[in-house]
Amino acid sequence: MNKLVVVGTSTGGLNALQMLLPALQQEFSCAVVVVQHRGKEPGSQLRDFLQRSSPLPVKEPEDKEPILGGQVYLAPRDYHLLVERGNFALSTEAPVYFARPSIDVLFESAADAYGETVVGVILTGANGDGARGLAKIKSAGGTAIVQEPASAQASAMPEAAIAATNIDRILPLKEIGIFLSDVCHQRPRGELK
């Protein structure tokens, strides 16, 4: 079964993603879904920025868009991004802990829809978003990965995640890329059902 990789980050996330994404080479077969906390400012600069360091195509999904392997999906500004069986869904529900998109919202929906096939990754950030969602992924049988707090630009988010659940791997950024490539290596690409 193909994995679904969900990544959450806030402060320092641009640098971290810039280092992580190049590790996910073209043969990477999983879908990667990223929530980077962002303001409501219009424009597609964030997507363009991430695309420059990503061998995989980066896009902001539309409502009900099918989830494909070998793609990086970025949560659009001012929406929550949720995962359903086979497709994305968007919502303008109230921000959760001041964040829309919220990491918890994405992670919880991923755990609900895909259970043990989900790999949750928490990177640098200065608040506690994602901790609850990562715990949900663990309790649904998925895998929890957290960036080593000492190597994170802001350690609060990794620390909150570590405090919230049993983490499978606490790794420096570089090794997270290797771990993900390993998990998703050489599986046939396809639509996530």
Binding site: H80, L82, A89, E93, E108, S109, D112
Partner: peptide, 9 residues
């Protein structure tokens, strides 16, 4: 209704 956000609510 779409299941994911409905479930949240």
């Amino acid at each position: 209704y779409a299941p994911a956000s409905l479930r949240r609510r």
